[in-house]
Design a protein around this nucleic acid. Structure first.
Length: 423
RNA sequence: GGAGAGAUGGCAGAGUGGUCGAAUGCGGCGGUCUCGAAAACCGUUGUUCGCCUUCCGGCGAACCGGGGGUUCGAAUCCCCCUCUCUCCGCCA
């Protein structure tokens, strides 16, 4: 959520910058400015009203104490009018505030000035590309066939017990999952991220805090008996640790990492790139999150992007880094890098990580602040990134490393799998 | 699931209708003392919104789990909700 004072002070600038995200903010901004003015006017009236009522109440107290009951009762009548208008004003204030807030959350985050406009994925900038695209032989097959061939992922049984998008990993497939999770967590920990295990379900306040609500309600599984949401990413619980928290400047940067299963309904995406592991309803992911000083956030964004790139390098996967254009960026992000690995049998790039700087967009909703010395609390910047999402990594590992003798495990992973080949 | 207890400032913990944003202690910050530190002593110490102010700041409003009510006046009384704890039952 954008800060109201920024909108108030630079409405034209806001509209201009949001147009980079192909978002026409003109009407919303105008509405916000008018609601804001209305809110302040009503608040002033209400405060004056209450102030008067308070001082009369005090007078009455003093009069009663000194036994001047008649005078006190006379004053009571004066408050009747005040009470009625106070009630009206406070109701009107509540309505205005609610409407203002509901409008405010409809505005996406401002893209960083360096973000190019663009229609969609085709307009993203390729920042770097690295690693050799494997030249597979004639007989190379896609990962869903490899999974079947080696008996390591069972899509069919997953359909039986739950539905499409919930595969069962078996044998070396299951072991590979566990190995990747540990590999990612160990790397993150080494890099200074504190590991934690968050809840996999969250309440509405948390989902709202990181921006899943109200924007992406349809993407989350909802447990109606308890009003809880299954997390679409560990970002939600991890970032919400700091909801309503005022940190000391010395506590920054806060670096956390967590493994979690991630649940996504992926409503409306059927039939498109959903084969095999490409898009699942439940998948595993290790997430990294940082809470940083505003002056440091872009430095940290680079550092996080480089860290994720380093993981892909260790896994010996060919990858490229994209800087997303305005049209492809998420609602809450100010700057996003996507990292994609090349999956050689499918012959396509698969997104395995998204590293974003949200600046104060999340912290404003979360009321995540920090204090420098005796200064006033100010909003921190939040960033997060996948490091990494497993299924597409597995897809690329299977496809790229297939040989007539089986699938080779990259060197860095062997200490974690305990085997060198899947055959 | 059943029964009971509770929710107050960073923490602990008073406060059951009238200058209570809230005693006291601890912690934090500043100072005195000291070569320095500890101890001791003195002072200070929340957040949000609005109005005013060039800075410092000033004034007003709100906040004692959340929402509603009674009252001239609510942390304090009433109602609803949420959460936590204890005991019993069940159970990984």
């Amino acid at each position: 959520m954008l800060q109201i004072n920024i909108i108030r002070d630079n409405p034209q600038e806001i509209i201009k910058r949001l147009s980079v995200k192909n978002f026409d903010a003109k009407e919303l901004v105008e509405k916000i400015i008018s609601l804001d003015a209305q809110r302040r006017e009503t608040q002033k009236k209400l405060d004056d009203n209450l102030s008067e009522a308070n001082s009369i109440a005090k007078e009455i107290g003093v009069l009663f104490k000194s036994g001047k009951t008649t005078e006190a009762n006379a004053l009571k009548e004066k408050t009747t009018v005040l009470k009625i208008s106070a009630k009206e004003l406070s109701e009107s204030l509540q309505i205005t505030e609610k409407e203002l807030n509901e409008t405010l959350v409809l505005l996406p985050n401002l893209p960083h000035p360096s973000i190019p406009k663009g229609k969609g994925a085709d307009d993203n900038l390729i920042v770097s590309e690295e690693g050799d695209i494997p030249m597979l032989g004639e007989n190379s097959i896609a990962h869903w066939d490899l999974a079947l061939k080696y008996g390591i992922i069972d899509f069919e049984t997953g359909v039986k017990i739950t539905g499409a998008g919930f595969p069962i990993y078996k044998g070396k497939g299951a072991k590979l999952q566990r190995a990747l999770i540990n590999f990612f967590l160990d790397n993150a920990t080494e890099k200074g991220y504190a590991e934690c295990q968050p809840p996999f379900v969250v309440n509405a306040d948390s989902a709202y805090g990181t921006g899943q609500l109200p924007d992406k309600e349809g993407q989350m599984y909802f447990v109606s008996a308890d009003n809880l949401y299954l997390i679409p990413t560990a970002e939600v619980p991890i970032t919400n640790i700091y909801r309503d928290v005022i940190l000391k400047a010395g506590d920054l940067p806060v670096k956390n990492t967590a493994y979690s299963a991630c649940f996504r309904r992926e409503a409306g995406s059927y039939g498109k790139d959903v084969r095999g592991l490409n898009r699942l309803h439940q998948f595993d992911k290790v997430e990294i999150v940082q809470v940083v000083h505003p002056e440091k956030s872009y430095e940290v964004l680079e550092e996080m992007k480089d860290y994720v790139a380093g993981l892909l390098r260790k896994l010996e996967l060919p990858f490229r880094v994209l800087k997303l254009c305005g049209g492809d960026m998420s609602f809450a992000s100010a700057w996003t890098y996507d990292l994609e690995v090349y999956s050689a049998a499918q012959q396509k790039w698969l997104e395995v990580s998204s590293v974003s700087n949200f600046e104060t967009f999340q912290s404003n909703r979360l009321k995540l602040r920090f204090r420098e010395g005796d200064g006033k609390p100010q909003l921190a910047h939040t960033l997060n990134g996948s490091a990494l999402a497993l299924p597409r990594i597995v897809a690329a590992l299977l496809e790229n490393n297939q040989t007539p003798g089986g699938i080779k495990i990259p060197k860095a992973l062997i200490p974690y799998t305990g085997f060198e080949i899947i055959n």
